[in-house]
Simulated assay, not measured.
Amino acid sequence: MRYILLALSFTIIGCSVQKKQPLKDYWISTYKNIAFIAAIKMAHPNLEKSDISPGVNFSLIGSDAFASEADSLGKAFYNSIIPPMLYKEQNLKAALNESLAFYKSKRLDKLARSAFKRFKDKEKAFR
């Protein structure tokens, strides 16, 4: 009986701690992950064959429209990367460095926060 109460208390505490982490943080992080992975996949198309992250992120964001928006944003970012002059003829890009900088940028933070606000507004409209 003591073990059952102990297990139950850990479950309740675990759930309450998890609820303290707002949905907004998870959603924004997932949106940014999708954009980042889309940019990386443009440089390394075989990535998806060995990693389930893209599928997990599409599930976590809770909206195909916003997942597609983030995916398109990442692809557009990759296409905007200009190869350094030294590698321009080979069309080689510093995709990993540039994509990581994009992931950490205030620009992507702002876009993700804006998308989350639109997501919440749509969610409220359906209630």
Rank of each mutant, 00 (worst) to 15 (best):
M1C: 08
M1Q: 05
M1K: 11
I4P: 00
L6R: 02
L8M: 09
S9G: 05
F10I: 15
T11K: 04
Q18S: 02
K19R: 07
Q21Y: 15
Q21R: 10
P22F: 08
K24L: 03
W27S: 08
I28Y: 04
T30M: 07
I34C: 09
I40K: 04
H44M: 07
P45C: 04
N46M: 09
L47T: 03
E48S: 12
S50E: 11
S53A: 09
S59P: 01
G62E: 12
S72T: 06
L73M: 15
G74F: 00
K75A: 13
F77D: 09
N79F: 07
I81F: 02
I82D: 11
P84M: 00
P84F: 02
M85W: 05
Y87H: 10
E89Y: 14
Q90G: 02
L96A: 06
N97H: 09
E98A: 12
A101N: 11
Y103H: 13
K104E: 15
K106V: 05
R107C: 00
L108C: 04
D109H: 04
L111Y: 09
R113F: 10
A115Y: 10
A115Q: 10
F116W: 10
F116G: 03
F116V: 01
K117D: 14
R118H: 02
K120M: 06
K122P: 00
E123G: 04
A125R: 15
R127V: 09
